[in-house]
């Protein structure tokens, strides 16, 4: 089974850690004297310039972890260091100045306009450059609505405004808690582009997300959280390999072709594929195989069925499959 200690090695890209979690635990007292363990023994570090995506079910502890970094909540036990400073009990102003944050639920003062919000947060961060505020609003595509009261903004517009606000102090670390929730598909794509942009500028990004395929391409590493614990942490290809998650292919044959199951049985026995399922009615075959065998398998199929193959779809496993692997495990544990 994957352990976070293993992942520490994978994360070692030679850059200094900007955040280090040292045995973080967080308990919440709930009614009836019960204790809800939101985080259990969290140990890992985040390197400078990486994009770490934290995924997990509702209540897995993702947002709590983000809030602990931001100093909004305090760990019950354990320590956290940001840029080498212990921030577990209180986060100093000079460290806060290096962190941009978008909370899970974004709400602004409704009676202020988007531009006034920028001015307000600018002043709080000792930034008074109105040209910069306009540029940041323009970058997220809401400059035209800058003079509108925020109460009239859609959820997506508020997220964009929050992104602009988070950039005011030009922080080194960005914390995004479900940043794309409530956004339409084009908004999500734009947001992903913006994250790429800030990451290309060398900024560290830690975000939680439910929209797995979109964040897959930009994530340096992913952290899968289950019931307050880290179930897995690492780069997606490494996790796929560790977990032995298979790619899937669907082969569709031309009408009138007579499917021979024996060949599929043969390549299964030779471990070129992991499994197969023949559908004679549709003249199609679903197969599962490991990524490392992809090219060899394609060559074999093309070599054998060049004249009879009508279509072939290959689905690469990714973050969704990794997450699914653990969420199925969670359900079976529950």
């Amino acid at each position: 089974m994957l352990k976070q200690e293993l992942s520490k090695e994978w994360a070692n890209n030679g850059k200094p850690p900007v955040i280090e979690f040292k045995g973080i635990n967080k308990d919440y007292k709930i009614k009836g004297g019960y204790i809800f363990k939101a985080l259990i023994d969290i140990n890992f570090s985040v390197k400078e310039g990486e994009v770490l995506t934290i995924v997990g079910h509702n209540g897995a502890g993702k947002s709590t972890l983000i809030k602990i970094i931001m100093g909004i909540t305090k760990p019950t036990a354990g320590g956290i260091e940001i840029f080498g400073t212990d921030t577990a009990q209180a986060i100093p102003k000079n460290i806060k100045a290096k962190i941009g944050y978008i909370p899970e639920i974004v709400n602004f003062y409704g009676n202020l306009s988007g531009f006034e919000i920028m001015q307000f947060f600018g002043n709080l961060n000792n930034v008074y450059n109105e040209k910069l505020f306009k540029e940041l609003l323009d970058r997220v595509g809401i400059l035209k609505a800058a003079n509108k009261k925020v109460i009239a903004y859609s959820k997506g517009m508020r997220q964009r405004l929050a992104f602009a606000v988070s950039r005011i102090k030009n922080p080194d670390i960005y914390l995004f808690d479900e940043p794309t929730s409530g956004m339409d598909p084009s908004g999500i794509n734009e947001f992903i582009s913006l994250i790429k942009l800030i990451n290309d500028a060398g900024k560290t990004v830690i975000m939680t997300s439910h929209i797995l395929p979109e964040v897959e391409d930009i994530s340096s590493r992913v952290c899968i959280m289950l019931n307050g614990k880290i179930a897995a942490l690492g780069k997606i290809p490494e996790l796929l390999e560790k977990l032995g998650l298979a790619a899937a292919a669907n082969l569709k044959f031309k009408d009138g072709f007579r499917l021979e199951e024996s060949w599929f049985e043969q390549i299964k026995n030779s471990r070129l594929i992991l499994d197969y399922n023949v559908n004679n009615k549709n003249l199609s075959v679903d197969i599962k195989f490991l990524e490392e065998n992809r090219m060899k398998l394609i060559n074999e199929i093309i070599g054998r069925y060049t004249d009879n193959l009508a279509d072939m779809n290959i689905k690469k496993p990714g973050l969704f499959e990794i997450y699914n692997y653990f969420s199925i495990k969670k359900v079976s544990n529950d």
């Binding site: 809030k67 100093g71 909004i72 100045a97 941009g100 639920i105 947060f121 709080l124 961060n125 606000v165």
Partner: peptide, 14 residues
């Protein structure tokens, strides 16, 4: 309750 506190706390203001 209105959800404006997290952003306020994330600013450089103590």
């Amino acid at each position: 309750e209105d959800g404006t506190m997290p952003l306020l706390l994330s600013s450089s203001a103590s």
